[in-house]
């Protein structure tokens, strides 16, 4: 799953490096010097353990391929998300330096795929919720298993997205996805079994090591800030930059319509309701067809399959404005629902 520099573009590599470096700085600050001194030996040892585990390849039956453990979930459970992220960063850096397993420029991508998803998404949102405050061995096992599978699926998906966005490999998105996801599902199952087994062993032999116990004692909750910040950066870059690389081919609905009717759009019925709706849309569409009004008309005159990439300031602006509006609307909806729940509980 380790991405190589040869398959990455500067934009994708640079962006992911910025995101991963930012997360590393945030994680280091979150841990703080006192906790760092207590956790340092465990971080070093677990890093070496996962490093060694990643070097053991196991054959995946019926596929003719092999896989190796990622270890992100194990680190997150035993160390907590922030320390686990730093450990994964160090493991991948050592692999890139000593074994050319993953590139230096692609290190940001690899750290994000193997570190961000298990530590900041799956661990707080899936593992902690499945396991609960007082975990039994069964719940720990099931939580570890499902979390490991999900983390690897998300990481593999990240590889596919980053490779496609880089545009160096000609492998189609669907084919790449079909190659990556099933293999990593099989790897995830093995990793889930190993993770569940190790966590069960450690929880029996040395329960104080478990980060779950530590988080309970300190009362700490995982902050959503790094997750939100990472998604925020990804949204801005996707809306402002990657939107230029959207496919010019018709989407599934337009393709189906074309096959059935010979046109990609169906003329609207000429009744009063449709006329009013069309007038309202024309007045409110500040960026029709995700571009400036002049640019959109030029695109339509140019034909169905315009130039690619379609570099356009209007498209970038449309993406950023649309993203910001969705964020505001979703945020207001969340606040409104929260107030409604508090009102219900009060009454």
């Amino acid at each position: 799953m380790h991405m190589a520099d040869a398959l990455i573009s500067p934009a994708v590599g640079g962006t992911m490096w910025a995101v991963s470096a930012g997360l590393a700085v945030h994680s280091a600050r979150k841990i703080g010097p006192e906790l760092a001194e207590r956790k340092a030996p465990l971080m070093g040892v677990l890093g070496a353990f996962v490093f060694a585990a990643q070097m053991i390849n196991f054959t995946i039956p019926m596929t003719g391929s092999s896989g190796h453990l990622a270890g992100g979930m194990l680190l997150a459970v035993l160390l907590g998300p922030h320390a686990a992220f730093l450990v994964m960063f160090s493991i991948l850096a050592v692999q890139a330096l000593f074994f050319a397993d993953g590139g230096l420029l692609a290190l940001g991508c690899n750290v994000f795929n193997l570190g961000f998803w298990p530590c900041f998404v799956v661990y707080p949102l899936v593992f902690r919720r499945l396991v609960g405050a007082s975990p039994t061995r069964m719940r720990l096992g099931i939580g570890a298993m499902l979390s490991a599978i999900l983390a690897l699926q998300l990481g593999a998906f990240g590889v596919v997205i980053e490779t496609r966005l880089s545009g160096i490999s000609e492998l189609p998105f669907g084919t790449f996805l079909l190659l990556m996801q099933p293999i990593h599902l099989a790897i995830g199952i093995v990793e889930g079994i190993v993770t569940a087994g190790l966590i069960a062993f450690v929880s029996k032999a040395r329960p104080e090591i478990l980060a779950v116990a530590e988080a309970r004692q300190s009362g700490g909750m995982v902050s959503a800030a790094p997750v939100l910040a990472a998604f925020g950066v990804a949204a801005v870059v996707t809306a402002g930059l990657f939107s230029w690389f959207a496919s010019t081919h018709p989407d599934g609905l337009e393709w189906s319509l074309f096959k059935v009717t010979g046109a990609t759009e169906v003329a609207a019925p000429s009744d009063r309701v449709h006329e009013i709706a069309e007038r309202v849309q024309r007045k409110t569409a500040i960026l029709p067809d995700y571009d400036f009004a002049r640019g959109a008309e030029a695109g339509e005159e140019g034909g169905a399959e315009g130039r690619w990439p379609a570099i356009s300031a209007g498209t970038s602006l449309a993406g950023l404005v649309g993203g910001a509006m969705v964020l505001v609307i979703a945020g207001l909806a969340g606040v409104a629902l929260r107030r409604l729940r508090r009102h219900d509980r009060g009454s």
């Binding site: 590393a24 760092a36 070093g44 890093g47 850096a93």
Partner: peptide, 29 residues
Amino acid sequence: VCSALGRLGAPRLLVTQFVLLYRFIFVLS
């Protein structure tokens, strides 16, 4: 390389982790 990363602004804890990982790889082996 670890020293360079630290002087270029990498968090101290991350650099410490790089160093300890390298040392503990041999302990583990």
